[in-house]
Design a protein around this nucleic acid. Structure first.
Lengths: 241, 241
DNA sequence: TATGTTTGTTTAGAGGCATTAAGCAAACCT
DNA sequence: AGGTTTGCTTAATGCCTCTAAACAAACATA
């Protein structure tokens, strides 16, 4: 099925990679506004419109680069997780989260790009959920959720009683839970997502410089957040290193 | 001191207001990318470069509009707060926070603009902290912090022991506390900021559509967050309405 | 009141960006 | 060997930011 890599195929693949690298280089060195079709083409050594043979539009190039970032971040998290045995779920979850923040602060431009790049919500009908960008984003979320699911299987954590879970939350989460197809009750999924939102939201605010008016190093806040999350998930918090 | 409003002054002021209104209209109807100098000028009825007599650059126009949004949001929060007597601090704080979310979801474009608009951190030396945009942003944060301070004065909430507060947090917060000049111990300030970060972060993620993959209506999540915050601040949570 | 300055505006223009169109040459396939 | 696909180029359109030059009306003042 995988087309035999003809000479042309290999060249094309190499150029595609080079283009994405150039785009990323421009982003990290000169900011997101510098990632223009023309500038990237110049960087690669081809002339403007030639780039349209590789990406149909500026938006598509942006999406491809975003997918790259998601994948790299996801890989970093998975790698950190796998450095700990499956029978110590707390260590695995903490390592995953810390790897996430570590990637975010060592790749601020890329992490901010993931956020600030236009995710205009669901205007284009059902959001083309098969685009590489969406797939990579999905995969990213799953790193966390899958671990909570594994945790639930062996060390179930307390969840709100059905009567304490707002009916609308249950209604909203039902389709998503079905789409996930995981063995996680709605209430547990809600707890997991709440934790995820706190983590992700904190990093978002850190990288978008919304907290620099008061804090310069958010690592202690992040660790406090992890402590809270461990408490919520009935895990033993362990400080880093 | 206030210059007597000559005829020219009045006209200028009117044009300035009209320009900012036009910019906002373009933002809400066509998205942030549509807020260009040319488009705004067209909307107002003057021709491109004329707008440079009112704003020195596109960036400055963006900053002015951002300041407008901050002010409007701040006013909405203060108004909601003042609808409750000063002797029911819980009601005042809850009303403030709910007004914040209400403004955010009824003015998604504006709230997202506040976030996504380039706050490139502290590259320009000390961040020109006297720009209208920065002042308005400062004022916005104070709506929340001032209430926590008032709360602290009458109903002090539990704060972490000094030995539980990371030394670096204390070090980081000391200059900010001094700059605030409020009667709030560092530990209490830290608790207040943690609450603020959760609130603001949740709204940020909601408006930036980072949660739409699972939730469509985040109001219940916001109320859960408020419940947590009330618990942290030793307040009685009261459901809305 | 006459004169000079400030202010609001316009058109022209430079330089950049996204994108499309037309054309050319090398690589590929048959 | 000939036709097709692919990669690339230059032109060209229309948008953008921003500067420059020019002009007229409003203002200030001697």
């Amino acid at each position: 099925m995988t087309a035999q890599t003809s000479r042309r195929d290999r060249l094309r693949r190499a150029t595609l990679a080079e283009i994405r690298e150039a785009a990323r280089r421009l982003l990290t060195t000169q900011g997101s506004a510098a990632v223009t079709i023309n500038a990237v083409a110049r960087e690669v050594g081809i002339s403007g419109p030639a780039l349209y043979h590789y990406f149909a539009s500026h938006e598509e190039l942006v999406a491809a680069v975003t997918a790259d970032f998601f994948q790299e971040l996801t890989t970093a998290m998975r790698t950190a997780r796998d450095a700990h045995a499956p029978d110590s779920p707390a260590a695995r979850l903490l390592a995953t989260c810390r790897a996430m923040r570590n990637w975010a602060v060592t790749h601020r431009a890329e992490f901010g790009w993931i956020f600030a790049s236009p995710v205009p919500g669901p205007p284009p009908a059902d959001q083309r959920s098969d685009s590489p960008r969406s797939l990579a984003g999905r995969d990213f979320e799953l790193v966390f959720l899958d671990q909570v699911e594994a945790l639930w299987a062996t060390n179930p954590f307390p969840v709100p009683e059905p009567e304490d879970l707002a009916a609308s939350v249950r209604a909203q989460l039902t389709p998503y839970a079905a789409e996930l197809g995981r063995e996680l009750p709605i209430a547990a999924l809600h707890v997991a997502l709440s934790c995820w939102i706190r983590l992700y939201g904190l990093l978002c605010m850190e990288v978008l410089n919304q907290l620099s008016f008061a804090y310069s190093d958010l690592e202690p806040l992040f660790e406090e957040c992890l402590r809270d999350i461990c408490h919520t998930l009935a895990l033993d918090y362990q400080p880093p290193n």
